[in-house]
């Protein structure tokens, strides 16, 4: 498993892909939060809420871009046949690929910890609400993990990486925002909307972002990751 993961990482960082993904993520976040109009300074409160609202949308584009090649390219170039002959189980291949992509996303998230330090230092009194911030980071961590699982799954569906990218984008958007959008339909306005919203990531992400770690939210995230990795595993079975 680790050898697959290492190989993935090497692939990301020996080409520009990994670097560009990380740089773009940090650049967009930095610009929107600290440079453009309507930034944190103009807002005037020591909070990173805007970052936690913005980051899911950037990750939505970024993660499918990172993972689109992971299986699709292997199928296309035929290297998957070689991978299959290795003494690795399918689960090991899936987990290896998954962890490889997730570590890249994780590395992209790490430097944003500087935002906490800078907002903390800049605040006149009291400082940032550490509990809610840690909660939001845990939420963002799980969100990224779920996005990665969905994207990996989409990549295993096809041998065309562009198709994989678009499918993953739609899949992530649907799960992140789609369910809360559907729940707002007037047809569901009484009764079902709450349960529909609960199916989406947004509901659980917001719940954790308050600074309240609830085992229900964590179980939800883990279930979604497990579901999509199992589907990936099934897809490999067919190849």
């Amino acid at each position: 498993m680790w050898s697959v993961c290492k190989k993935e990482l090497r692939q990301f960082f020996s080409s520009l892909t990994g670097y560009i993904a990380i740089v773009v993520f940090l650049l967009v976040n930095g610009l929107v939060l600290f440079v453009f109009d309507d930034n944190i300074f103009a807002f005037g409160y020591a909070t990173l809420d805007r970052f936690f609202q913005l980051a899911p949308w950037i990750l939505l584009l970024l993660i499918p871009a990172i993972t689109m090649r992971s299986f699709a390219d292997e199928f296309k170039t035929g290297t998957f046949e070689i991978l299959q002959t290795r003494p690795l189980s399918r689960w090991q291949i899936v987990w290896g690929k998954y962890l490889g992509s997730f570590i890249v996303v994780f590395i992209a998230l790490l430097p944003t910890l500087i935002y906490i330090v800078s907002v903390q230092k800049l605040s006149a009194t009291g400082g940032i609400d550490m509990g809610a911030t840690i909660g939001s980071y845990i939420g963002l961590f799980f969100l990224a993990a779920v996005f990665t699982a969905i994207s990996i799954c989409c990549s295993s569906l096809t041998n065309n990486s562009v198709v994989a990218f678009i499918a993953a984008l739609i899949g992530c958007a649907l799960l992140y925002y789609g369910f809360s959008a559907i729940s707002k339909l007037p047809a569901l306005a009484s009764g079902a909307d709450y349960y529909v919203e609960m199916l989406g990531i947004d509901f659980h992400y917001r719940s954790i972002s308050r600074g309240l770690i609830d085992t229900r939210d964590i179980v939800y995230f883990c279930s979604v990751i497990f579901l999509f990795l199992t589907i990936t595993n099934r897809n490999l079975l067919k190849k």
Binding site: R210, G211, L212, I213, D214, T215, S223
Partner: peptide
């Protein structure tokens, strides 16, 4: 997965990270 989530919704633990223990 549904059953697991349902069970989790019955037996849950919460950790309050906020400074003023809001929850």
């Amino acid at each position: 997965l549904f059953v697991v989530n349902f069970l989790a919704s019955q037996l849950y633990v919460r950790f309050d990270l906020t400074k003023e223990k809001r929850y």
